[in-house]
Design a protein around this nucleic acid. Structure first.
Lengths: 163, 163
DNA sequence: GTCGTTGCAAAACATTTGCAGGCCT
DNA sequence: AGGCCTGCAAATGTTTTGCAACGAC
């Protein structure tokens, strides 16, 4: 656990240097919180996790903003549209999110650049980037519920769109 | 303008029937507000637009939630992560968003199902769906600013992640 | 020493809820 | 008539801000 930490810590340290920002305990702790979460965190969740370390919520908000800008964090949604943030481990990877257990696996872009090129051709846009999330069931959950929810688009308990 | 409206109104009417929900003026007005916006609306923006018609904000929240569930609305982000909602005109289409003027053009899935299949193979997930947004500059804005922002990922004015 | 960063608490903003009455079907 | 929908206003929850002190460089 401690040896793996070194790696991710170095990742953060390098990004901070590149941005000429400063290394602080709080920054590190926020990053760690996201790293240690398999399924991503909403900001309030992250706040809860680091409050014990004496870190204020404003600091979490400020740091999440920066980590996003540095590309160390990426956002994902559950199908309800709820915003979660997750440590971006693979450069240019895309999250595959299990709708049941919320596990996330990263996959490469694959042929997506082809889609970009095609979109560019069709629309005349100069394509600068994209955001792709894939939803489904992880192998384990898939086994548990062969076809759990009849209507993935119409959950029983209508959830909030949250801005 | 009035003749085109018929089409979209019918779209809404059909969806409402299919869901056994009720046709109301408020529901229609909210839908219209999103239809008439090229670049999508945040909920507070939508509230502002229909307030003049005597529609309360709670109603807007409630209806956006339902339109989302019906698949009539789709969410998009600006690169900062801000949540906007936009009328989904093309079934299974994906928004191509101009980062400058915020114009949105819809494109088809293209080969994306191939990406889904590949992701399924690599991760073992049972893939149920995806969410793709493509960012770039529309032809017009592209001409205006051949390379406007040097760092699309690092805007000068750090914006809020908003949950 | 400088200035980016921080925690705190309050302000600002966004979203949900309870309820009585209205209006689709 | 029945019950989904609505507007209102208050309750809740989320995000930002101001500021003095702290700590990294």
């Amino acid at each position: 656990m401690t040896s793996a930490e070194t790696d991710d810590t170095a990742f953060l340290r390098a990004a901070i240097r590149a941005e000429r920002k400063r290394w602080t305990e709080a920054r590190h702790a926020v990053w760690e919180a996201f790293l240690q979460s398999q399924e991503g965190l909403t900001i309030p969740e992250a706040v809860k996790r680091v409050k014990a370390l004496g870190i204020g919520q404003a600091t979490v908000y400020r740091n999440v903003r920066e980590l996003l800008q540095m590309g160390l964090l990426q956002w994902v949604h559950d199908p309800n549209g709820d915003h979660r943030f997750i440590a971006a481990r693979m450069p240019h990877g895309h999250p595959v999110v299990c709708q049941r257990c919320k596990r996330v696996i990263w996959v490469d872009c694959h042929g997506l650049s082809a889609v970009e090129r095609l979109a560019a051709l069709e629309t005349g846009f100069t394509v600068k980037g994209h955001h792709l999330e894939i939803f489904g069931l992880c192998p384990n959950c898939s086994r548990l519920s062969p076809d759990g929810e009849p209507h993935p688009g119409k959950p029983k308990s209508p959830r909030k769109p949250r801005r």
